[in-house]
């Protein structure tokens, strides 16, 4: 589902490579943690998957397509196959919970009847039934992240990317979010989650890819956060 072949990339004006010769293969339906210190290349990795950046060398394949050579007009179609969740939720403050989720479908031109059907369904899936009319500032942080997950998942993407989704949440709420991501993973969606949260990684026992200074130093199935060589 996601494959990096000898991927290296350097940001303009910097000597050090953000990623150096990374080779990673993530299968369809996998749940993968991307761990590493700040500046280790996690965000660059995610940006390359989303084609917000392009590598200097090597190839990136997402959903069967080599995306670093993809024409830019095809990028929106790629991103419809990927849902993305961030640490800071990124909800639109002037729209209700349901409108925030519906927005993701409206802007890709889905018909109203379809939106009216799947938005309540998705809100129920993430545990927000009955809260569709609330504004984002009326609900808790954990609930806001659920809205963001609902928005990312409402179009049933093949891949869900989560960049520190529990970074702003307390441990208890984080567990709820992880359960939700696990549930989404069980529907067949590939989940790629960048995190610093050792507790969560240890608990989930999923595949762990650790980056350090832009290189993969560990790729372990059923890993834990603090594994040492």
């Amino acid at each position: 589902m996601i494959r990096f072949e000898n991927v290296s990339t350097t940001y303009p004006g910097q000597n050090r490579a953000a990623l150096g010769n990374v080779n990673v293969d993530i299968e369809k339906g996998e749940f993968v943690f991307l761990v590493g210190a700040s500046g280790s290349g996690k965000s660059t990795f995610l940006r390359l998957v989303l084609r917000e950046a392009r590598p200097n060398h090597g190839r990136v394949y997402v959903a069967g397509k080599e995306i670093n050579r993809m024409a830019s007009w095809k990028v929106p179609a790629l991103r419809r196959k990927i849902g993305t969740v961030f640490q800071d939720f990124r909800l639109l403050p002037n729209k209700t919970v349901a409108e925030n989720v519906a927005f993701a479908l409206q802007v890709i031109g889905k018909p109203k009847s379809h939106i009216n059907l799947v938005v309540p369904e998705t809100l129920e899936l993430v545990g927000l039934e009955g809260k569709g009319d609330r504004m984002p500032d009326e609900i808790s942080g954990g609930e806001q992240q659920r809205v963001a997950i609902a928005r990312a998942f409402v179009n049933r993407p093949q891949i869900l990317i989560a960049d520190e989704p529990t970074g702003n949440l307390d441990p208890e709420t984080s567990v709820g979010i992880m359960k939700l991501l696990d549930r989404i993973n069980r529907t067949g969606t590939t989940v790629l989650m960048a995190t610093h949260d050792a507790g969560i990684v240890d608990q989930m026992r999923k595949r762990v890819i650790e980056l350090s200074d832009g290189t993969v130093v560990r790729d372990q199935s059923r890993g834990v956060y603090g594994f040492q060589h």
């Binding site: 989303l50 991103r79 639109l92 890709i108």
Partner: peptide
């Protein structure tokens, strides 16, 4: 910028944006 960021992320076409 917030709306535009989300639109780009969920794959809205350039024309639509």
């Amino acid at each position: 910028r917030k709306e535009i960021g989300i639109m780009r992320l969920v794959g809205a076409s350039n024309l639509y944006i």
